[in-house]
């Protein structure tokens, strides 16, 4: 199990840092000397979950690889807001080619490093569009060849860079510019979309995990675990998007937390296609609590609340809870260590 044990301190294991812990036990993000893989001055929106998620993941990977890391980025928000000529926000070796080819480019980088005899690890990264849609073929190829690449999807559930259009990661009922709030079934339809972590598991790769920007310890542990392995690996990080979700910029982490705590976004890890651990829900919430804070779901809470739609979304959350055993009796104190 990758999850770090819960340590009870003034704030327990959930805050970024803890003055009472030894330096080596603290998160990478608590370190004043962290890489800051993506630096200040980037042009992401206020409260961008993707900028945060990328720094969390890559700083952890930089520590895990002792700085011997190269990153391949697909086209998308993360690429556009980080590298507008003449300014780059990246402090790491970074390469961008196209929208749909980041997994393949990463394969090429890994091959070059291997042939050159260099112990440089490779991460490919993309938003959900670059991962589940246009980059899917390349990603699947990278997976099945078991190329030595960790691919990270920063999932904000839509094409936000182009103006918030639907992707195969957009959840049902969510409003996007291509699933507008019109007609008898406003928002995105039910019964579509790809569950990429499970698709990745079906490739039998060594490691698949999900994480959110709301649980840094969990996320960093998963990056550490991923970087301790070789071959194809996949990390799917939920990164709320204030612009696309219609949420307050201050709510980014809170929403990621509610997504997990409602069960809508299950947080787990799998090795060779088998789920090996789940991050249990600490304080379960109804999906309404998550949905209400986002304008993309505002149509569900009009004068006549769409209770049937909300119930279907709740059923999805319940199904996740059942499938991954996200709630257990001792959730609150399961791993508590004094």
């Amino acid at each position: 199990m990758t999850r770090r044990p819960i340590r009870f301190y003034q704030v327990g294991s959930f805050a970024v840092g803890n003055r009472l812990l030894e330096d080596e036990e603290r998160t990478v993000q608590s370190d004043a000397k962290r890489t800051n893989s993506i630096d200040s001055g980037h042009r992401a929106c206020q409260g961008c979950g993707e900028a945060l998620g990328a720094r969390y993941a890559l700083d952890a990977a930089m520590r895990a690889t002792n700085g011997q890391l190269a990153v391949v980025n697909a086209t998308g928000c993360l690429e556009v807001f980080s590298t507008p000529y003449p300014e780059t926000s990246w402090r790491i070796a970074w390469l961008h080619s196209l929208f749909g080819n980041a997994p393949a480019v990463a394969t090429g980088v890994a091959a070059a490093m291997r042939v050159k005899g260099r112990d440089v690890r490779v991460i490919g990264q993309a938003g959900d569009g670059g991962t589940v849609d246009i980059g899917f073929g390349a990603l699947s190829g990278m997976f099945e060849r078991n190329d030595d690449v960790l691919f990270i999807c920063y999932d904000n559930e839509g094409y936000m860079n182009t103006g918030v259009q639907r992707s195969a990661a957009t959840p049902p009922a969510a409003r996007t510019a291509t699933t507008e709030v019109v007609g008898p079934h406003p928002g995105n339809v039910f019964g579509q979309g790809k569950d990429l972590p499970r698709i990745a598991m079906a490739h039998d790769v060594s490691y698949v995990a999900t994480a959110t920007v709301a649980d840094l310890h969990d996320l960093e542990a998963k990056v550490d675990k991923a970087m301790s392995l070789h071959g194809a690996r996949y990390l799917h990080i939920l990164v709320p998007c204030p612009l696309g979700w219609g949420s307050a910029s201050s709510d980014t982490i809170h929403l990621a937390r509610l997504a997990a705590e409602s069960g809508l976004f299950p947080v787990f890890e799998a090795e060779h296609g088998v789920v090996t651990s789940v991050t249990p829900i600490r304080r379960r919430v109804r999906v309404e609590e998550y949905l209400r804070r986002q304008k993309r779901y505002a149509h569900l809470f009009a004068t006549e609340p769409a209770t049937d739609v909300i119930a279907r979304l709740q059923a999805m959350a319940d199904a996740n809870v059942a499938r991954y055993h996200l709630v257990n009796d001792e959730t609150a104190n399961s791993d508590l260590e004094a």
Partner: peptide, 14 residues
């Protein structure tokens, strides 16, 4: 109480 949260959660490293 020096939990580093503000330092950690800022998307702009500010």
């Amino acid at each position: 109480f020096e939990c580093d949260n503000c330092f950690g959660v800022c998307p702009d490293n500010a």
